[in-house]
Design a protein around this nucleic acid. Structure first.
Lengths: 241, 241
DNA sequence: CGGAGAGTTGACAAGCGTCAATTTGTGTGG
DNA sequence: CCACACAAATTGACGCTTGTCAACTCTCCG
């Protein structure tokens, strides 16, 4: 029961760049299937060559690196529309692992086909480069936040990102959005300890900015959040693979 | 007096992937000129659309982002062979600035030509995606280092990177390599204060691991450096644009 | 000779990490 | 239905890594 790309629920969202009819047909061929992943499923593994690439259709996940000393750096939070496995696709080896946090639905592509895509469809290969650039842009922002800002602002930044992205993918309801991660995941993404993350979240709650309970983020004061986060609410449009 | 790509001094280095005759001819067309930049020259600016893309041929530079609070995050150290402006080329806007630190020689490409490159030469467009993935990989490592490791190891990590890259580009002489940056630049790249960076450098010196004076890095104990940095000395091969 | 930039060092403060105990929620088995 | 185990969130106490402030040195350059 795989969804046809034509009926892809993501395609119409303003977050994503347009998709021509011809490209649509091509992507349909490129797609080899669909996959359902349970929470905790390892989709891609750091240091390994994966035969499969994915696009997240629904659900959320985590990208992370394990360090020699046992600590973990979360390098990204997977949300619908994200393309997974680019590094394996072009470099042959993933720099990080990807794991499902909720149940996920994924488009599956064949790694071998990516080369064919480059030779056959320049517009699509440009889209892949575009996505890589978007990722580089994000990681630069993340590095700047982790490297230069205090914990209170780091958390606000991450929350603003979550909320804006959720709005862009239609997951937000009024001022709330699903956020199924653990505080530990956020802490590992921001270079903070779990305890300190928890305490700063409490401050944001006390300040009436936001609350995050039972997997749901609620933004009580969007203006304040934007100001603390230093983050514009506009999300850059990106291609969908 | 622009150098012909055929005689590019970088092309033969083992760091870079092979370059076919046909590709060589194509790149020669793609290249619109050469540029000499003095120390301090701004090559690309955060938030701006640049009409030109570069490949660094010689010299070194800095990639950085400025934050609202006035602090600066260095997101990369430019060394020979690096391709600059990918974000402007495919996203239309740079996420960071690039500035020359020493005198630099750069290959200059036309931004408009990049689209033509994608349609005309799949192998080269794949190389661009490859470079983007290499950059993503690096930023992931940097984020993990900045987020999870103590200052002593951060500095060792950065120094190991510098030294390995210098060896790969033939800039290293025995156990020394040119390193023309300021301590402030390193500090801004690792999320540390200048003072603390200086003190930890002194510890590395006292421990007999390395010294860094007058723009020259000397590695006295490569084994120890590799162990502290947690960094393999092998550098991934990459395309040259 | 004076000033600016870079590096160095010490004293002190603070943001954040670690340890530990408690609470809450959820699922499992008796 | 309760007892129990387990994961996650929460809170307080304490300490250490790191930041800030400040003074001094050295070099380069006008």
């Amino acid at each position: 029961m795989t969804i046809k790309c034509e009926k892809c629920p993501l395609r119409g969202l303003p977050l994503f760049l347009e998709f021509g009819r011809e490209e649509l047909d091509y992507m349909q061929k490129f797609k080899t299937g669909e996959m359902q992943a349970e929470p905790g499923t390892h989709l891609l593994s750091q240091g390994e060559r994966s035969p499969q690439l994915f696009t997240a259709l629904s659900g959320m996940g985590l990208k992370y690196k394990m360090l020699r000393n046992g600590s973990r750096q979360v390098v990204g939070f997977v949300m619908p529309g994200d393309f997974l496995g680019l590094q394996a696709g072009v470099m042959g080896e993933m720099g990080h692992s990807v794991e499902a946090v909720t149940e996920m639905t994924l488009c599956v592509f064949n790694r071998a086909a990516i080369w064919e895509l480059f030779s056959a469809h320049p517009e699509r290969s440009f889209a892949i480069a575009h996505l890589a650039a978007v990722e580089e842009h994000f990681l630069g922002d993340a590095l700047a936040t982790v490297g230069q800002r205090p914990a209170y602002e780091k958390i606000a930044w991450a929350m603003a990102r979550f909320f804006n992205r959720a709005k862009a993918t239609g997951q937000a309801v009024k001022n709330t959005a699903p956020l199924p991660f653990r505080q530990q995941d956020l802490a590992d993404g921001l270079g903070l300890s779990l305890v300190h993350t928890n305490k700063q979240l409490a401050v944001l709650r006390r300040d009436g900015v936001l609350s995050w309970q039972n997997g749901t983020l609620t933004v009580h004061d969007p203006k304040a959040l934007e100001r603390i986060a230093g983050e514009e609410s506009e999300v850059h449009r990106r291609p969908l693979i």
